[in-house]
Design a protein around this nucleic acid. Structure first.
Lengths: 207, 207
DNA sequence: CATGAAAATCCGTCCAGTCGGTCGAAATAC
DNA sequence: GTATTTCGACCGACTGGACGGATTTTCATG
């Protein structure tokens, strides 16, 4: 981005644009090499700025990374919500996250390394655990809503919706780890069958 | 360990003792701060040696970490095998990993940060993916054996044992992540119920 | 004295964060 | 309308510290 572009923006707009630009670059770089191995120089260059330019918008690497992770998780959650509301049937809602196991999805290729990085951070850093907790909680809220709905219609067997939602969420996650990290032995088809099987049986739906 | 101890050992013994000592220290430190943040100095001090002492036994940090991870995964797997063979009933075998959700277990407190670290590495490094793959494969072999047994006795419904084993393994993993990283919302009781429920229903066992 | 393990030291590299400076644009003065 | 000043985004050289690996030194042992 050259200097000509700058004048045509309001200042507040510019700040938001630059921050976004930097955060996108941060996510890409962390995804590529991990947050411990990424340098501010890498991020700056990826964003088309210099170290000083990045420093102008973010006070430290730590703050930048946290903000980047936060926005990324937010985006993934929004996407999940957009997907789930496209289904009316409660079981379909619970099974609507197949895109998590699609190699051609750009969010997937960017996202899994980010997720693993965030989890590794979380195991040492309470702030990242909090971030993870908030993210999971929003998923649970969304899933348990669908479960309650299904129970009302008599589709699902009786069980605590929140507890069941946590189990479903965990199953998606566990399958995802295998699918992404041991890809030669865990095809996308396996992943889809695994979650479908586990979840339908868990909910007491006749197969 | 002080100098008096050293003379009473054969040289080959000593080498194995030192390597073990260093590896244990490495695992502890990685568990505490992550493999990227650990320094050779940290490891040496933890092992009661100096940097030079460690360098004498391991050529580089990279090699040391890989070897440490390898031995750790091996140990966990051995422990799992020891546990599973204590049960005769195939379903009990599949449910015999409750110790994975026990906060008082020393392997647990040491192990989860190591596992998350290894996964984050694996998402960038094929060598760690290979390590993960081999580890998973041994689990799958062990689990699918129990599943085959259960099918022979007519306890489990028909389904591909390996595919089902992969699903069970993934469920254990997914539940573990939630339990360890979002501990305030996921009790050990929840974790045990979650795997028991998911697995018994997946296997078609009458609850 | 000889040997080799371990300690101490050194050196090259890398990186986060700082700071003085540049440049263009907007504001103000005249 | 033009000159001048101010403002702030941005740059990039630099610093200080940390680290990994190699080299040198010390020392226990036989």
């Amino acid at each position: 981005m050259n200097r000509q572009d700058r004048g045509i923006q309001h200042l507040n707009d510019l700040e938001e644009i630059r921050k976004n630009q930097i955060i996108l670059a941060t996510l890409k770089k962390i995804s590529e090499v991990g947050s411990d191995n990424v340098t501010m120089d890498d991020i700056a260059r990826e964003a088309g700025l210099s170290k000083g330019g990045v420093a102008h918008y973010f006070p430290s690497k730590d703050v930048l990374c946290r903000e980047a992770f936060k926005r990324f998780f937010e985006r993934i959650f929004q996407r999940s919500r957009d997907t789930i509301i496209g289904f009316a049937d409660p079981l379909s809602k619970l099974l609507s996250f197949g895109w998590l196991y699609n190699w051609n999805d750009p969010d997937v290729n960017l996202g899994y390394p980010l997720l693993f990085d965030a989890m590794a951070m979380a195991s040492h850093d309470a702030a990242y655990r909090q971030l993870f907790h908030e993210w999971v909680d929003r998923w649970i809220e969304m899933l348990s809503e669908a479960i309650r709905e299904g129970r009302e219609y008599g589709l699902f067997q009786d069980a605590d919706p929140v507890e069941t939602a946590r189990t479903i969420s965990a199953i998606y996650h566990g399958v995802a780890v295998r699918w992404y990290l041991d890809r030669d032995s865990h095809s996308s088809d396996w992943a889809l069958r695994a979650v479908r099987n586990s979840i339908t049986r868990l909910m007491g739906v006749k197969g």
